[in-house]
């Protein structure tokens, strides 16, 4: 091999600089390896450090939340300062009502917008809407709350559950739109073509073939969006406002778990502090149950996808 160099080419001998360079790389190899090892250790440290806050938060939530959790918490109304006991039954129901309202507003619009984005993929308007929905998704939730106040509370003159639901629903729109788009996007084109070839009209193809195929994924996306808005407090401060009493009227201020956690947390009373921890634990549990259901919905989709 070494003698096989063609006679025309110059001898392949490294220049002085190249030799110096390669010698240096070999000489510094030990140091470079040490630096590499150190930096990799730093990366591992970063990973540990990133997970630590989560462990701490959950640890405190569990230890402080469970101890103040009781059956009364779910069934009783809040008690005034000084009286022991009491629960957050109204806040739990309020949160569920607000979630329902938000879904009623956010889901149809979000799914519809997502269908548009998926069906008009390259269109200018679709690109614009996609970009704007990403931007809307990053909008501070308190701005959404103030918008809802200006839009729905100020003209009427009083806070209402409806305004809170609309604020939360508006926050859901961009999230639902983007996941719907993604899920409709992975439905095979052949399925759509088959339906069209069988004489289905376009709208029926979209709704009863494409949307139905993507439905499990869309449900997942919707649940993820619901899990995200369920814990929102800022948009509710000036809309749903909170309510010490039992209320399920959409026109009246309504209580919500995050609002109660907030007002109890900044209160000076120990009894309320422990109620705040219990409320936070229930809120997190609610969010996790929704997220878990969302995960199972995705699983089901993949399972049927594999069977087809």
């Amino acid at each position: 091999m070494t003698t096989a160099t063609p006679p025309m080419s110059p001898p392949l001998r490294p220049t002085l600089r190249q030799r110096a360079f390669s010698e240096r790389t070999v000489r510094t190899l030990k140091r470079r390896r040490i630096v590499s090892g150190l930096m990799l250790a730093v990366l591992i440290g970063a990973a540990v450090l990133a997970v630590l806050p989560l462990i701490f938060i959950f640890g405190h939530l569990l230890t402080l939340g469970v101890s103040s959790l009781s059956w009364d918490f779910f069934t009783k109304m809040p008690k005034p300062v000084g009286e022991t006991g009491g629960g957050l039954a109204n806040a739990i129901v309020g949160t569920l009502i607000l979630i329902g309202l938000a879904s009623a507003v956010g889901l149809p619009v979000g799914v519809g917008a997502g269908l548009y984005l998926a069906e008009r993929k390259g269109a200018k308007l679709a690109n614009g809407v996609r970009f704007l929905s990403d931007v809307l998704n990053g909008l501070p939730s308190i701005v959404m709350g103030i918008f809802a106040w200006q839009f729905l509370v100020r003209p009427v003159g009083h806070f209402s559950a409806l305004a809170g639901g609309v604020a939360l629903g508006a926050m859901m729109i961009p999230m639902v739109a983007r996941t719907t788009e993604e899920m409709v996007g992975i439905v095979p084109v052949s399925l759509r073509e088959a339906a069209l070839a069988l004489g289905y009209s376009r709208w029926r193809t979209s709704l009863s073939v494409v949307l139905r195929t993507a439905s499990a994924g869309i449900v997942t996306g919707a649940l993820v969006a619901i899990a995200r808005i369920a814990g929102e407090t800022a948009p509710l401060l000036f809309t749903a406002f909170g309510n010490q009493f039992w209320s399920t009227s959409l026109k009246q201020p309504i209580s919500a778990l995050p609002l109660q956690v907030f007002s109890y947390a900044i209160s000076p009373y120990d009894a309320w502090h422990s109620l705040a921890w219990a409320g936070a634990l229930v809120l997190i549990a609610l969010i996790f149950i929704i997220s878990l259901v969302a995960r199972f919905a995705t699983r089901a989709r993949f399972a049927t996808g594999g069977g087809d």
Partner: peptide, 22 residues
């Protein structure tokens, strides 16, 4: 590990505030 880090995003702001205060 990825799941745990993502989980941080699922915790509501008000719960961070509560944890922060106490």
């Amino acid at each position: 590990v990825g799941f745990l880090v993502d989980l941080l995003a699922a915790i509501p702001s008000v719960v961070y505030g509560l944890w922060g205060i106490f």
